[in-house]
Design a protein around this nucleic acid. Structure first.
Lengths: 174, 174
DNA sequence: CAGTACGTTCGGTAAATACAGAATTAAATG
DNA sequence: CATTTAATTCTGTATTTACCGAACGTACTG
């Protein structure tokens, strides 16, 4: 490989790692999550933990835990080759899976609030004090919003992104 | 107010604060963000910083900064009464605004990656090395995915949640 | 049933963060 | 224009977190 080529590749790696780190930080994850995601994202063939140690400089332990996290987030897949003890990793590039990974974070957030709202409503209904009616109203209204939001997300999962866009563009609706 | 009534109200507050704190932690924010959001969420009338100091026990400085954050996140609105220096806060309960707040986080994440992918592609195209073609393909594919995701979100913003549900339920599509 | 080659867990530490309290700024009122 | 009353910014500190390296577990291999 010529120098320029290597340079271009490293440039790209820098861009991607940077974006992944920023994205990770916003989502409340550590830098390592971002760095590792960025590295894996550009990996064209399965990459081992040792490779990751070498390219990122992180210790095996931090790589281990953060790769587990990335796996449960659905951003990375673990390749297990029979007859090879080494795990290897590839990025998840399947559009549907990626989309699910994004939407899942939102779903969790919504569900969390929804549960609290539901039990809150129940508590207030059981208490049955007219003075708390206004509070109950507020809660019911939020509940219906979040319930609808949850429903919308569930419905979205029925379509792939292209279908979704077509639908939203209103090919049949206005 | 009778004791039972107060109890119900505090119970509800506990549920909501808990959910908000969890949600905040997942999103990478501090507990204070969650606590404050929870308190404001249940506020039926505008609530001042002093009130928040009293009910949460946080110092004015942490309340100040965290309320600013909640405001920019679109979860809380600041009420400015002419002739009163005190700020007061109300929860954002408007469904559209709430939805936008949720979707915005996703949008930022997508946009971040998209920008990096775009400049990466450009870098690779400019470099023009056949050996990097595979990498370029990968990037282009990710790019199209994230671009579509962004587009889908933009389109979603044209509808309110009810319309969205109706559309997704497939009044015209299966 | 050692020995090896992995991944994971655990304990310690350096760095980052959340928060309190003091100092500061800004606006309104006498 | 001083005083009062509010929010914000700044600075120090206690807590938390990220990370490393060592110890440990586990599954092949001779």
């Amino acid at each position: 490989m010529r120098d320029h080529e290597v340079f271009a590749e490293e440039q790209v790696r820098e861009y991607m790692i940077n974006a992944c780190v920023q994205s990770a930080r916003i989502a409340g994850y550590s830098d390592a999550v971002g760095v590792l995601r960025g590295v894996i994202m550009l990996a064209l063939e399965p990459i081992s933990m040792d490779d990751l140690v070498e390219t990122t400089g992180y210790s095996k332990s931090t790589i281990s835990s953060n790769m587990n996290l990335l796996e449960t987030l659905g951003l990375v897949m673990r390749i297990v080759t029979p007859g090879d003890k080494k795990y290897r990793y590839l990025p998840v590039t399947d559009a549907d899976t990626l989309r699910r990974a994004i939407m899942n974070r939102v779903k969790v957030e919504i569900h969390l609030l929804l549960q609290a709202l539901e039990i809150s409503e129940k508590t207030l209904v059981d208490a049955n004090f007219p003075e708390l009616e206004a509070l109950q109203d507020r809660i019911v209204r939020m509940e219906t919003f979040y319930r609808k939001a949850e429903q919308a997300i569930d419905l979205m999962e029925r379509y792939d992104t292209d279908q979704l866009i077509a639908l939203l563009k209103g090919s049949c609706n206005d």
